[in-house]
């Protein structure tokens, strides 16, 4: 299975996701901002991107839009953010995300969403 790419500038959040996902058997890769994420996603196919919105250099929306412009196999994307506001879910969808979860996310919620997006196993 290709790794789940975790994109979040907070290392503690990445550790949290990684701990949950690796315990459930998912291979993971992680990066700290949108620029590195784009590079990673183009270099190695991933089975899912988990993306934060507010990040240095390139934010989550800009990263997703850039990724969706690339002529590569498009992985599903899950946005997890503390950003609220009107129609945050719609904003995520329009940028190319396939699902949105508010941060902080519970382990069981994360696992259920990741399983749905990746089809359980690839």
């Amino acid at each position: 299975m290709n790794p789940v790419l975790i994109v979040d500038d907070a290392a503690v959040i990445r550790t949290y996701y990684r701990t949950i996902l690796t315990a459930a058997g998912y291979p993971v890769a992680e990066v700290g901002d949108g620029v590195d994420a784009l590079e990673a996603a183009l270099q190695q196919p991933c089975s899912l991107c988990i993306v934060d919105v507010n990040m240095p250099r390139l934010d989550g929306f800009a990263f997703l839009e850039a990724l969706r412009r690339e002529p590569v196999d498009q992985p599903p994307a899950l946005v997890i953010t503390t950003d609220r506001g009107d129609d945050i879910a719609g904003r995520c969808r329009r940028s190319g995300a396939n699902a949105y979860l508010p941060k902080p996310v519970r382990p069981e919620t994360l696992l259920a969403q990741v399983a749905l997006l990746t089809g359980g196993r690839a």
Partner: peptide
């Protein structure tokens, strides 16, 4: 309900 995937490859 889908089951979580099992590890098949080492983490990156």
């Amino acid at each position: 309900t889908p089951e979580p995937a099992r590890a098949e490859e080492p983490a990156a």
